[in-house]
Amino acid sequence: MSMTLGVSRPDQAAYMLRAAAADAGRAYKRELIDLLDVRPGHTALDVGCGPGTDLSALAERVGPDGTVFGVDRDPAMLAEARLRTDALPAVEIREGDAHALPVEPGTVDRVKTDRVLMHVAEPADVLAQLHLVTRPGGLIGLTEPDWDTLAVDAEDLETSRAFTRYTTSRLVRHATVGRGLARLAARAGFTVETVLATTSVFRDFQDADHTLGLGRNVQRAIKDGVIDETRGRRWFAALSEGPFFASFTLISVVGRRPVS
């Protein structure tokens, strides 16, 4: 089989910037920020800000009298975020963990997390931190995928299903946290105001391979004995020949910390 399976992980900052620049990425990010109703003078917090993809949009909304905190634990991400926001005086980049946010309690008007909770150790503990730092009446906006909804079209349907099961059970720490966002937010003390589902659709094989890790992850599934090597390679080669379709669902939740 001549098709080469990818095995290396992409540079994470470049990966996140490319994903955010895609049409689907721009649409759900814009919708989440709109739902958060960020206003001039607000203090906004982006937990797991990564390379700073959304910090400029938040800074524009809080204006010269507002503040935007970008928090991440990855030094490479923080360095990229600082470069991207160097000319934005409203933005302050802080190193920190989502389980112990470097922000004073009760000081933030708006909080955003985007595809962060699926990676953390304890999503419920992070939601407790969000409740701690948010002012009474403040809003949080959460977006996470549900990887059980990953659908990759192929004549070999069983291998596509095996790939989705492998992604959910082996590759992502909290692969279905998206469907639980409303429950997690409510248990943390927020009043859930909005729940939305957005389907991300991929019709270009190269974009899907980059974003979903089709090649490198089927290689891992083969190595782990989950997918037969010959079958996995044939499946991946057939995907590359097109026409191509894949999709998964992103869930967004907006919650408010009650005033009393």
Score class of each variant (00 low, 15 high):
residue 144 E to S: 08
residue 160 S to M: 07
residue 138 G to H: 10
residue 150 L to A: 09
residue 145 P to R: 06
residue 114 D to H: 12
residue 134 T to N: 09
residue 140 I to D: 08
residue 117 L to K: 02
residue 162 A to Q: 15
residue 152 V to G: 00
residue 134 T to P: 05
residue 162 A to T: 11
residue 135 R to K: 15
residue 133 V to E: 02
residue 145 P to N: 10
residue 164 T to N: 03
residue 120 V to F: 02
residue 165 R to Q: 14
residue 122 E to R: 14
residue 163 F to S: 05
residue 150 L to P: 09
residue 153 D to E: 15
residue 151 A to G: 00
residue 143 T to R: 13
residue 147 W to H: 06
residue 131 H to G: 03
residue 160 S to D: 11
residue 155 E to F: 08
residue 140 I to Q: 09
residue 129 Q to I: 07
residue 161 R to H: 13
residue 157 L to M: 09
residue 153 D to P: 00
residue 146 D to P: 03
residue 126 V to K: 03
residue 160 S to T: 13
residue 123 P to S: 04
residue 116 V to N: 07
residue 141 G to R: 03
residue 141 G to K: 02
residue 127 L to F: 15
residue 152 V to L: 03
residue 132 L to E: 13
residue 157 L to Q: 15
residue 147 W to K: 02
residue 153 D to L: 15
residue 154 A to W: 01
residue 124 A to W: 05
residue 142 L to E: 14
residue 149 T to Y: 08
residue 157 L to I: 14
residue 111 V to P: 03
residue 153 D to C: 13
residue 164 T to W: 04
residue 154 A to F: 01
residue 156 D to S: 05
residue 111 V to A: 11
residue 121 A to W: 00
residue 131 H to F: 15
residue 112 K to G: 00
residue 130 L to K: 07
residue 113 T to Q: 11
residue 135 R to A: 12
residue 129 Q to C: 11
residue 146 D to G: 06
residue 129 Q to A: 13
residue 124 A to V: 06
residue 155 E to M: 10
residue 153 D to V: 12
residue 121 A to Y: 00
residue 159 T to E: 09
residue 135 R to D: 02
residue 126 V to A: 07
residue 118 M to A: 11
residue 136 P to G: 11
residue 143 T to V: 15
residue 165 R to P: 00
residue 138 G to L: 04
residue 160 S to F: 02
residue 152 V to S: 02
residue 134 T to D: 08
residue 149 T to E: 11
residue 162 A to C: 10
residue 162 A to M: 14
residue 130 L to P: 03
residue 122 E to N: 13
residue 164 T to S: 04
residue 140 I to S: 07
residue 131 H to R: 14
residue 122 E to T: 14
residue 132 L to W: 00
residue 135 R to L: 13
residue 139 L to Y: 10
residue 128 A to F: 00
residue 149 T to F: 07
residue 121 A to R: 12
residue 116 V to P: 01
residue 158 E to G: 01
residue 119 H to R: 05
residue 129 Q to H: 09
residue 151 A to V: 13
residue 150 L to I: 10
residue 133 V to M: 04
residue 127 L to R: 04
residue 122 E to V: 15
residue 118 M to D: 01
residue 162 A to N: 10
residue 119 H to C: 05
residue 160 S to Y: 01
residue 154 A to M: 07
residue 149 T to C: 09
residue 118 M to K: 04
residue 130 L to R: 08
residue 116 V to A: 07
residue 159 T to Y: 07
residue 152 V to Q: 01
residue 145 P to I: 02
residue 139 L to I: 06
residue 148 D to C: 06
residue 129 Q to G: 13
residue 116 V to Q: 07
residue 154 A to S: 15
residue 120 V to W: 01
residue 164 T to P: 01
residue 121 A to C: 00
residue 136 P to L: 10
residue 153 D to F: 12
residue 157 L to F: 12
residue 119 H to T: 04
residue 138 G to T: 06
residue 140 I to H: 10
residue 147 W to M: 12
